[in-house]
């Protein structure tokens, strides 16, 4: 019964998103497509941070791996969109494996700084090889290269539906992961690493696996973002993009399946509406971070779960 209730809730959310495809005004239609792609990234971040307790400050490296893995293939090798998306997904996972092998030797504060440093080195590398990546200016992916099995990714309607399909896959996979045995082991690792080790689980393997899954999500999101919105630039691999998923996850609720999406949705519109009043949108981000960590460290869904909705995965 427990699993069913959760499944119904998540399918319901997906149904609402499908309904929005037909009803939402053009402006929000585009926004929601973007939010769904970013939510995949945030879900990936949540698998590392929310479930496994790995606070990374360098996920932009994984997002960037997907973004450039896909973007450079399309731009320099004329790869087709499906190949590029799969390449981006794998690039994210491979980058997570490489970072994890080194960074997971540390924990706590050192882990945060090491991931931050790796991401910074990655960002600078993108700038350094500006002749291939076009650095800050970025690559604009031509429309002809944004075709997915005959579907035009630059078309608003197709883009929304593809984004929804990717988001739905990612969300349901995340739900399955959270309810699986491995999902519970990840949480055990977060709650008490020593005790889990005593029970026979290898913390390093569990964390590395979680990080790789997180990298696959981030890479997929990066690749999809580049191809759908036609732009691959260094700013998308900067520190800012390491902080964004952290913010989304904190707002929506760390360690909840729907939290990353809810956080991305609310934060996106909060900044959007704030921009109408003031151009100080960095202030909104900063204040949101400080207020959340002070008053609601569990986020919205985390708080709801603590207040009675115990079945929320």
């Amino acid at each position: 019964m427990k699993a069913d209730r959760a499944l119904v809730l998540h399918l319901g959310v997906l149904a609402v998103l499908l309904a929005l495809h037909f009803t939402a005004p053009a402006y929000h239609h585009t926004n929601i497509a973007r939010i769904m792609v970013l939510a995949i990234y945030a879900m990936g971040y949540n698998i590392a941070f929310g479930y496994t307790g790995l606070l990374s400050l360098g996920h932009a490296l994984l997002f960037g791996a997907g973004l450039y893995g896909a973007g450079l293939l399309v731009y320099h090798a004329d790869a087709s969109a499906p190949v590029a998306i799969i390449a981006g997904l794998l690039a994210g996972g491979a980058m997570a494996l490489a970072v994890g092998l080194l960074a997971l030797r540390t924990a706590g504060v050192a882990f945060m700084i090491v991931t931050l440093m790796f991401a910074q080195a990655g960002y600078l590398t993108v700038l350094y090889f500006g002749s291939y990546t076009r650095g800050d200016e970025g690559i604009v992916i031509p429309r002809a290269a944004r075709m997915l099995w005959g579907l035009d990714l630059s078309d608003d309607n197709t883009r929304y539906l593809i984004a929804l399909a990717l988001f739905a896959t990612a969300l349901l996979a995340n739900l399955a992961l959270a309810q699986s045995r491995f999902g519970r082991i990840m949480v055990a690792m977060r709650e008490n690493e020593e005790r889990s080790r005593m029970l026979g689980f290898n913390p390093f393997t569990v964390k590395l696996t979680a990080l790789i899954v997180s990298g696959l999500y981030s890479g997929l999101s990066g690749a999809a973002y580049g191809l759908m919105f036609g732009y691959v630039g260094a700013s998308l691999a900067s520190v800012q993009y390491s902080i964004l998923p952290l913010l989304y996850v904190l707002l929506g609720g760390a360690g909840t399946v729907l939290g990353p999406f809810l956080g991305a949705l609310l934060m996106f519109y909060l900044i959007d509406y704030a921009s109408a009043v003031t151009d100080a949108h960095q202030f909104v981000t900063g204040a949101a971070l400080v207020l959340l960590i002070l008053f609601a460290p569990k986020g919205i869904l985390g708080t709801l779960r603590a207040r009675g909705l115990k079945w929320l995965p």
Partner: peptide
């Protein structure tokens, strides 16, 4: 928590 909070502070001061 302090790292997250100081990141927020960084954004606020820059803005």
């Amino acid at each position: 928590a302090t790292i997250v909070a100081t990141i927020g502070l960084l954004y606020i001061l820059e803005q």
